[in-house]
Computed example of a mutant assay.
Amino acid sequence: MTAVWRGSNPLILASRSQVRQALLANAGLSFETVPAAIDERAIQRSSGLARGDEIAVRLACEKAREVSSRSAGRYVIGADQTLECEDRLFNKPAGRAGAAEHLRALSGRTHTLHAGIAIVRDGKLLFENVSVARMTMRELSEEAIEAYLNAAGDAATASVGAYQLEKLGVHLFSRIDGDHFTILGLPLLPLLAFLRGQGLLSL
């Protein structure tokens, strides 16, 4: 256990995301990683939801609930992020061609990131939150797209917008409005506020 975390057991993060793991670790939280076994696209389709914020929260809740069902007594964090641009929802690109198509669609436009989180314990939803960031991508020529994809490599297909802001993706933007943690996919400040309110943090 860390000096910050006061819970009797570590948190559980229902995500494989290295970025989310790093955010929790850097905040001094004790946690374990147990990826959720859910079909995100099937849940999204069956939910009937169309708005990015609603989908992000629903998927975060479903991830946390699935892991909670096999983690008695533990606080489980679910997280999900959606990208919406001009009424279109984006998923992770399929390969380099898909990443290039994403970048062409986002070039010169402002898109919205919704980062949803949920905390579930013993199947009960204790907390949910969705935070918003708005990202304005600069006009990208075909040459700039090719140069970025060559430099970024496989990382371009690892996130929904074909970019990782904390890495080379920062070169793609002219303006960013929103919380840094929201952009990285885990709204850390509301999460910490909830945990603090539960008496689980020493700070």
Rank of each mutant, 00 (worst) to 15 (best):
A27V: 05
M135H: 03
V120H: 04
E32G: 08
R41E: 15
R104L: 06
K63L: 02
A36T: 06
P93V: 03
K124E: 15
E84V: 08
L106D: 04
S71C: 09
N91K: 13
A37W: 01
E40R: 10
H111S: 09
A27S: 12
E62N: 00
I38Y: 05
S68M: 06
K124N: 13
S47R: 05
R134E: 11
L103N: 04
R109K: 15
A37N: 14
T33Q: 10
H102P: 04
K92I: 12
S69F: 04
D39M: 05
A36D: 02
A97H: 13
L29M: 10
D53I: 00
E66P: 07
G52T: 00
V76W: 00
K92F: 06
E84K: 03
L113P: 01
R45L: 14
V76S: 00
A133C: 02
E32W: 08
V34G: 05
G116L: 01
L113Q: 01
V34S: 11
A97G: 14
S46R: 15
E84D: 07
I77D: 02
D87L: 13
A99K: 01
Q81Y: 03
R65C: 10
G116I: 01
A100L: 07
E54F: 02
N129C: 15
A99P: 05
L113G: 02
N91T: 15
R121L: 05
G78P: 08
A100K: 11
E62G: 01
E86R: 15
R121D: 08
E62C: 09
V132L: 06
E101D: 15
G108H: 09
K124W: 08
H111V: 01
R58T: 11
S47C: 00
E62M: 12
L29F: 09
H114T: 10
A60I: 06
L106S: 06
I55F: 06
H111R: 03
K63A: 04
L126D: 13
N26K: 13
D122P: 06
E101S: 14
A64P: 04
Q44Y: 12
G78I: 06
S69C: 13
L59D: 10
R134M: 02
G95E: 06
S107K: 11
S107A: 10
E128H: 13
V132D: 03
R74Y: 06
Y75P: 11
R41P: 00
K92C: 07
R65Y: 09
D87M: 11
D53W: 00
F90H: 13
A37I: 11
F90T: 12
G123I: 08
N91Q: 14
M135L: 13
